[in-house]
Write a protein that binds this DNA or RNA. Structure first.
Length: 817
RNA sequence: GCCGGGGUGGCGGAAUUGGUAGACGCGCCGGAUUCAAAAUCCGGUUUCUUCGGAAGUGCGGGUUCGAUUCCCGCCCUCGGCACCA
């Protein structure tokens, strides 16, 4: 074999072999344990970036490892192909989004193949193809029928100059990215999915996901934000109206000193009719974007409405304010304000000189200075009439009972989670399959008229969606026979597509149904891998869709992903690689120069997958160097032609030690790849083994036999990570069988045995000496050996030994004074 | 602002269940090889040191025979915050 490592030649040869034999195509096999390994599919933005390479390298290592465990492994790949950047490219370069997207897909597919990922390409799908999105249109109409879809108004970013809705990303420092105009909040009608109907199940089932990181489960639980509280109606003075609020702290209800409503609230609108100052304020409240950050960090402002409401318990009159910190879209659009016990209310009260009343005192009897801050902990009620002396929990019940008895409120479970708005006023997305008839009724497009195909032969004249002015798309007879109707021109949120693609991979060729029984063979996904930035939205929506599909009888699983690996980001000079920062590194030139194996190896070696990875050009060279050393060691051994025969009974101590190293490495790598997913330490362990083999003297048959055992072990252990070079070495070592189907190595217990163990001896917790003890030594013998050690004698001389701690197999700690 | 991570040599990182801090790699220094260089190989590499040791895992405190690991309080930094994907 060649003495030189030539990755270009090796990799293209191995890849051709895989392709010709369709090596990664799988079908359902009831006799084998299945393993569905999925990496989050990419948005086809143009070319692969380092984050993709990292994500897909991790998924590929896990897939190949599982295959060597004898499992029936499916690893598919596809394209999350709808999205905003295609429209940006269309506007900028006058290229249709479909053309741009499909060209990007072609290029990126080539890159993935060049990296040697073990995908079943027969399952490839692109979400922008009608064959894919027709089923989510159909699914939407089923949900509509079941009442899980509804229409309501909600706020969007509005660019008053370009007369268009903007995505949050298109709002730069409160201004439209193209026009530079100050963005406004505007309410428009949009479609929603009732995800809140599933809030309890989505929360409870997090318990069924022990294979997910705790951080992700915590974030999802906090996002859903289940709270138990009280809904209370406050009568509006001189009116029949009631103002409904929701509170999680009914125990503080006696401390209300004012109330507040959102600018869009009907009471505020009504009050502003004859009040120019109020009108101006309400208008001012509309400026700004829609993000939660903006809402939470903006300066809190308000104006009194000169309306009073009656306290449901005391019947006192309370002034009503309008404020920008209350949101119409969240809860009832009105809040009770208790400045003594809520920090935001406290700050607002200070600003507008509103009274602050203490009705809760700390239960430990300490004092809280209300002039410094609100007291937000629970405690004992005070200044609260008949509720005085109750603790917060008892007061919650007493007050809830009171309002329920007096029919002015009731206990209610609330969620921070809001229903999912799926309408987008954009072109490059899946058309929402709705036709509005002339009576203003929204009708689902009948199944036999699906898919509603997005016209792709279009041009962007301005920046708004071309189908919004395309009469041949819009005008259509209503399906109820009522005459001419109009198509919905909004498209789905692209999260809609990515919420079920994992299921479609199981049966991408079915043109009669969304899913079939093959989905029940493969699902749930055994291992899902993707960026931590998807911890909440994408993963929550995919969980939600799984439950919807289950309830429509399309599949059997409750959860989509059994195990989740959230990979960290790829950084350069400490910050995320991004075009705007100009610190991107294109993986392609590195693949061209060093080969796929080197790039894959570096990605897996530089840091554990959950952590961020700091990019290093010299680190890549280091990985390349290691592969060259592996090649050299192997070719020297193979070309030498001496295979040797291991005579276990005649092994020298150093031979025994080297062989022990090999089998320790097998256990270590198996644990690191199979259980811990710390590929970096797995690689380090193989490097240590290769270093040890390189130092070994080759004198007799045993030496050659151990060398061969070591090299074969290294090839097998590294094969999921660097599949090309190991395939070539495997063949050169004389194996006929394909490496991808070779059995994963098992350690020989006999090789791991050792008669003596090294133990550390500490004095007062500080390392002072090391001793070698027999494996069979008991605690007393170990202690005696430690005490008589020369160096230890020096440290305990003249001192009193107070205690001796022996941790078998590890250390002895002698405590002296 | 809210929710969730992270912080260890010059750098990436290791230490898996509270038990030897710095594995492995990069970089750097020295040496071998070479006319020379590249490549390769060998050795060294936390800091301070009176060469006995001492200090040291973002900062301050605590628990423990023993803390990178557990607890409390801070600082910095990264991800998400519902229309980027």
């Amino acid at each position: 074999m060649d003495n030189e490592y030539n990755p270009g030649k090796i990799e293209s040869g191995v890849q051709k072999k895989w392709e010709d034999s369709n090596a990664f195509h799988v079908t359902e096999d009831p006799n084998k344990e299945k393993f569905y390994c999925l990496s989050m599919f990419p948005y086809p933005s143009g070319k692969l970036h380092m984050g993709h390479v990292r994500n897909y390298a991790i998924g590929d290592v896990i897939s190949r490892y599982q295959r060597m465990q004898g499992k029936n492994v499916m690893q598919p790949m596809g394209w999350d192909a709808f999205g905003l950047p295609a429209e940006g490219a269309a506007i900028k370069n006058n290229v249709p989004p479909a053309k741009w997207t499909y060209e990007n897909i072609d290029y990126m597919r080539g890159q993935l193949k060049r990296l040697g990922f073990a995908y079943d390409w027969d399952r490839e799908l692109a979400t922008c193809s009608p064959e894919y999105y027709r089923w989510e249109q159909w699914f939407f109409t089923q949900l509509y029928e079941k009442g899980l879809v509804y229409k309501k108004t909600s706020i969007v970013n509005w660019d008053p100059v370009d007369q268009t809705v903007l995505a949050n990303e298109q709002v730069i420092e409160g201004k439209g990215w193209r026009s530079g105009a100050v963005v406004e909040r505007r309410e428009i009608p949009q479609w929603f999915l009732r995800i809140t109907d599933y809030a309890d199940e989505l929360l409870a089932d997090l318990e069924k996901l022990p294979g997910w990181p705790d951080a992700v489960r915590t974030m999802q639980a906090n996002w859903i934000g289940r709270s138990e509280g009280l809904e209370v109606d406050f009568k509006v003075e001189d009116s029949e109206d009631a103002l409904r609020i929701y509170t999680t702290r009914p125990d503080t209800i006696m401390g209300i000193t004012y109330m507040a409503v959102a600018a869009e609230h009907p009471l505020a609108k009504a009050a502003s009719e004859n009040d120019a100052v109020l009108r101006a304020f309400i208008q001012e409240c509309k400026s700004g974007g829609t993000t939660e950050v903006e809402m939470e960090t903006m300066e809190k402002k308000g104006l009194p409405l000169n309306i009073n409401v009656r306290h449901p318990i005391t019947d006192e009159l309370i002034p009503l304010w309008v404020s920008n910190f209350v949101l119409m879209g969240y809860g009832t659009g009105a809040v009770m304000a208790v400045p003594g016990h809520d920090q935001r209310d406290w700050e607002f009260a200070h600003k507008y000189d509103l009274p602050i009343k203490q009705v809760i005192v700390p239960s430990d009897g300490s004092d809280h200075d209300l002039s410094e801050s609100a007291f937000t902990d629970k405690g004992l009620l005070n200044n609260s009439a008949q509720f005085d002396g109750l603790n917060s929990a008892d007061a919650f019940n007493a007050i809830a009972d009171f309002v329920e008895k007096n029919r002015c409120g009731n206990r209610k479970v609330n969620y921070r989670l809001r229903d999912w708005g799926i309408s987008r006023q954009r072109y490059w997305g899946c058309p929402i399959p709705i036709i509005n008839n002339k009576n203003g009724e929204a009708l689902a497009v009948p199944a036999d008229q699906l898919p509603v195909v997005l016209p792709v032969d279009i041009e962007f004249e301005g920046i708004s969606s071309p189908i919004k002015s395309m009469s041949e798309f819009i005008n259509i007879d209503a399906p109820d026979g009522s005459g001419p109707g109009e198509r919905e021109t909004d498209t789905f949120d692209t999260f809609f597509e990515s919420s079920w693609y994992f299921a479609r991979y199981c049966c991408p060729d079915n043109d009669q149904a969304m899913l079939d029984e093959r989905a029940d063979y493969w699902l749930p996904v055994d291992q899902y891998i993707g960026g931590i930035e998807h911890a909440i939205l994408h993963l929550l929506y995919a969980r939600f869709f799984t439950k919807l599909m289950r309830d429509l009888g399309l599949l059997k699983s409750d959860e989509p992903f059994t195990n989740l690996l959230t990979q960290g980001m790829v950084l350069k000079d400490g910050s995320k690689m991004s075009k705007s920062k100009g610190n991107t590194v294109d993986p392609q030139p590195l693949i061209d120069e060093y080969g796929a194996d080197t790039v894959r190896l570096f990605m897996m070696f530089a840091s554990p997958p959950e952590q961020s990875l700091e990019w290093s050009d010299t680190g890549v060279e280091g990985s390349f160097r290691f592969l060259k050393r592996l090649w050299k060691l192997s070719s020297a051994h193979i070309n030498d032609g001496k295979t040797g025969v291991l005579e276990k009974s005649s092994m020298t101590n150093s031979q025994r030690e080297l062989r022990r190293k090999i089998h320790l490495t097998i256990d270590k790598v198996n644990d690191d790849i199979g259980r811990r997913y710390t590929f970096n330490t797995a690689i380090a362990a193989v490097m240590e083994m290769i270093n040890a083999l390189s130092r070994a003297e080759l004198k007799e048959s045993n030496d050659h036999a151990i060398m061969r055992e070591g090299i074969e072990t290294a090839v097998l252990l590294l094969s999921p990570i660097v599949p090309h070079i190991t395939d070539a070495l495997w063949k050169a070592l004389g194996h006929e069988e394909a490496l991808i189907d070779a059995a994963w190595p098992k350690s020989d217990p006999e090789a791991l045995e050792q008669n003596e163990i090294e133990m550390v001896v500490q004095v007062n917790g500080k390392l002072r000496s090391k001793i070698t003890v027999a494996k069979t030594a008991d605690q007393k013998q170990i202690e005696a050996l430690a005490m008589t050690d020369e160096k230890i004698q020096q440290h305990i001389e003249g001192k009193t030994v107070r205690k001796t701690i022996v941790i078998p197999g590890r250390l002895v700690n002698i405590v002296v004074s």
